[in-house]
Write a protein that binds this DNA or RNA. Structure first.
Lengths: 233, 233
DNA sequence: GGCGCGACTTGATAATTATCAAGTCGGAGG
DNA sequence: CCTCCGACTTGATAATTATCAAGTCGCGCC
């Protein structure tokens, strides 16, 4: 890793909680900062967790398949990492990852992460906090999946995405509809029909462009709830 | 808490990773060891996380509702706790808990847990490991829910439960079928029909008694997979 | 011991979602 | 600039699941 890249990596959020800067250097010593084009698979389900991947730039889709089906478990961005739990226990990945856009990924050797975890209390706490946040997100997602219909999930996703982007009532979908469908747990055809079903609720879609003309009406259908949709921290 | 109870509580698995025994004493100082009868709701979704609950004896159902639906997110037993993530961040519970059997629950004040987390590196690591384990369990559960049909989930649950109980090919369901249905993400009527659908796969059910006459046949339908069903550690 | 309530099963129907097929359109690569 | 491939939409049908209703059975409480 180039000196100037190392300088930049020292400052990323992932290392912020580390007490001893020497631990950050130890983790960076064997690390790679890799640039990937879109569509590349970064890790695969079932593979041993040799690296912790930290997203510096770009968007990554976490997904997995079983038999002839595939689903998207989450979409991650800068500051997120994958997969801490697999690295901590030195167990195979339970998910695959694919770059949705061009991405820069810091790949930290798993052993170095475990050593820092064992040696640095601040880092251990930081890891615990990341895992707690991820855990809460998954509980919300599982509730979303089990307690709501596909249409409700879409409506709530639209409202949450709008809120996270300044509540302007209009935005472009950040990724393909195929990915959004998988993320919401439905087939692409069903997402298409769900968007059509939202027309009476003043939602206008043209390609990736979405306009929510009357959020209050959509909210009536969606019935958002902080324990499923809320910001976790 | 009685002296002898305190002695017993010092030794539970939850405190095993703590470096400084004084931290365990500090957590136990304001703690309660409470006995609850079956059916009692121990915590409710949306409530502030004032205590960390550790199950000493008994079985607890983690569940949540939305609008007029309810689902079971997990069933926990001795050694498990709830809910670490809420306590760490001092955020409301995202799940409710109900005793399925009579239970003894150690209730540790949340503030004391946070103080020990900040002060004791061994405890912080132990918390991180618990959260990592729980996280992996949830990923498997979300995959189970999104990638399999209800019948497949039941078949895999039966095989996993049998394997966890000595692979004798016969066992009694550990809780009501209503709870199992909710746990698997289906209505009780659908569970009933799913059991009936398993008759051609040599599964015999009488009340809570289940016999798996030919595990190989059931496995053919279930298609178990370590990244969805496997033991996590 | 009897009564009442909730778990469970079964039947019927509605709703939701998946799958298959066919066609359009846009973007990427040659 | 043209061609090809994949995303997306629309139509049709199958599969899965939810919901409602009604009846049975077992357990707990009085």
């Amino acid at each position: 890793m180039r000196s100037q890249d190392k300088e930049e990596m020292r400052r990323i959020g992932f290392f912020r909680g580390v007490d001893d800067p020497e631990q950050v250097d130890a983790m960076l010593r064997g690390a790679f900062l890799q640039r990937f084009p879109a569509h590349v698979e970064l890790i695969q389900t079932g593979e041993p967790a040799d690296f912790l991947h930290v997203i510096v730039d770009g968007t990554v889709e976490m997904f997995s398949g079983h038999r002839d089906r595939e689903t998207t478990l989450g979409v991650s961005g800068p500051g997120d990492s994958f997969i801490l739990a697999a690295v901590l226990f030195d167990r195979p990945y339970l998910q695959s990852a694919r770059a949705l856009t061009a991405a820069r990924i810091l790949m930290v050797p798993a052993e170095a992460v475990r050593q820092a975890f064992a040696a640095d209390a601040g880092f251990a706490r930081s890891v615990a906090e990341s895992l707690a946040l991820a855990y809460r997100g998954l509980i919300m997602e599982l509730k979303n999946q089990k307690l709501r219909s596909g249409l409700e999930r879409l409506a709530n996703w639209l409202l949450a995405h709008d809120a996270a982007n300044g509540s302007k009532g209009r935005f472009d979908l950040p990724f393909d509809k195929k990915v959004l469908a998988a993320r919401l747990g439905m087939a692409p055809e069903v997402l298409s029909r769900s968007f059509a079903a939202l027309v009476p609720y003043e939602v206008v879609v043209q390609g990736p462009s979405v306009v929510i003309r009357d959020p209050a009406v959509l909210r009536k259908l969606a019935q958002p709830c902080t324990t499923i949709d809320g910001a976790t921290l």
